[in-house]
Design a protein around this nucleic acid. Sequence first.
DNA 1: ATCCCTATTGACATAGTTGTCAATAGGGGT
DNA 2: ACCCCTATTGACAACTATGTCAATAGGGAT
Lengths: 200, 200
Amino acid sequence: MATRKRRTPELAREEILEAAETRLQKYGLEGLNVADVAADCGMSHATVIHHFGNTAGMRSALVSRMTHRLLHDIIDSLQQGITQPEPLLHKLFGTLSEGGHARLLAWTHVSEEALDQDQARTAHMQSLFAELVPALTDSLPAGKADPDLTRKLIFLSAIAAIGYGIAGETLAPLIGLAKKDQKQFPDWFAEQINKLSNTP
Amino acid sequence: MATRKRRTPELAREEILEAAETRLQKYGLEGLNVADVAADCGMSHATVIHHFGNTAGMRSALVSRMTHRLLHDIIDSLQQGITQPEPLLHKLFGTLSEGGHARLLAWTHVSEEALDQDQARTAHMQSLFAELVPALTDSLPAGKADPDLTRKLIFLSAIAAIGYGIAGETLAPLIGLAKKDQKQFPDWFAEQINKLSNTP
DNA sequence: ATCCCTATTGACATAGTTGTCAATAGGGGT
DNA sequence: ACCCCTATTGACAACTATGTCAATAGGGAT
């Protein structure tokens, strides 16, 4: 029909994931189907499937991309000498609670089809964490002193941020948390992490 | 055709939710559709829809039921004089990480259709938390002294348990948490909560 | 210019699931 | 025994979304 736009595979994937990410924030997970994503890119849904194999592949790639960006932001911060928990945790909580990041992450663990893509994504995650965790234990105040404790605190921070991103908005009023306390929760949490890492 | 089994509406709903819960643990969220649930109950899927309005209604009712049970277990423990964080948090983390509880909870926050059922479920949750939170602040060691801090700690416990239930299994090895530390994480977490609530 | 690889596409097949509806049949109340 | 309410059902009608396939057309290489 009309003229087609031919892209390199890399560019095509990039465009698709970009559109997918926008749709995710705008419409949530339901908006993350090949037909609509393709429409936003101005291509047919068959093209999307061609590049990612299937729908789950596309979503999975998006998870990888978003997580990759988040973890590398943190790694970059560390390399810039930012070693206090506050800014790091702020970024962690903020990113996960915005743009549907935590929700997409939840889909990863909730959906059966997502499991098919698991090996690839897990491998990618492994390499990311293999880079991040040592960087954290090295640069955090109490990291070298007690790497074991540090790993537990990292783990706690991660699951808390995920839970916060998914259910925080709902849970806070139910528990009777003041609006202000809700907003400042990541900062408060960082304080507590500080206290716990200084306790011998 | 063959003879029908006629139940009271209450019993029917009960049977359906029971089967749904079993399917949830066995097959995850994908197993939670009216057709399969109905088959497990030995009834037609039209009956399920008759009792819950639609599929989302059934899932939503299941969320309510499971959460109700969890929170009431905790309330009961409190009334039996169990006021140390350890056993309470143990129950919280354990329940959420088993039987797909946290995952179903995530669906609540991830799915658009779930939002239609939100008012009813939110109302139910409000009444549950209205019962639980005062009970906690009253009976917990540091509760009366600093109810504000206590609410924050409750909030932290809740989101941590949810994140743990969803992603804990995946995250622990990536962060390099020893298997032992992973298993005992809820206990360790309880310790930290203790420390934080004793800090003035 | 010509060739060739492959990104792109429209049409199609299909699978799965949901929700509706009129008809049927338990079983409690009289 | 008879009525009546409603739980139950099978069949039907979409719809949604996915994935396949053969055909088409960019655009780099020769």
